[in-house]
Amino acid sequence: MKQIAATAAAFGLVAALATPVLAQDMSANIKARQGQFRILALNLGVLGGMAKGELTYDAAGAQAAADSIVGVSMVHQPTLFVEGTDDMSVEGTRALPVIWENTDDFAAKWAALGEAAKGMQAAAGTSAEAIGAAMGPLGGACKSCHETYRTP
């Protein structure tokens, strides 16, 4: 009886110690991944604006935006998408639990983004029309992951 109580206390202690530390760590991971998606969107804003003629085309600016997208696409995702940070377990995220059921597919979708980003990197410095053509595959890569892995 005494032993059970002691074990329970030990578990309680572990839980008490573990929870706040984990929660803190996970909020950093969530912030970081949401921030990386914002970096993607902001740079796409520059490229999309040039493709649509809302911004004047500037080869250096376009190249910098495309390079930034490639840079983000090289960030190792498992560090940001740690287990227990889905929308059923914690607040403040739209990441669906299926991400952790289909880790291979999620990784493949991130890799597909990398490929499309390289297409944009090759196009950005040439012309606004070339950017327009590269927007399709890039947008397709975003959409196909959001379709399955992000809650509305």
């Binding site: 969107a41 796409l44 397709g140 959409k143 196909s144 959001h146 892995y149 992000r150």
Partner: peptide, 18 residues
């Protein structure tokens, strides 16, 4: 394209619609 004015991209069931 699926892009919102701030270049987020459509997801969920809207992805098919797009």
């Amino acid at each position: 394209s699926g892009f919102t004015p701030d270049y987020d991209s459509a997801g969920g069931h809207m992805a098919h619609v797009v």
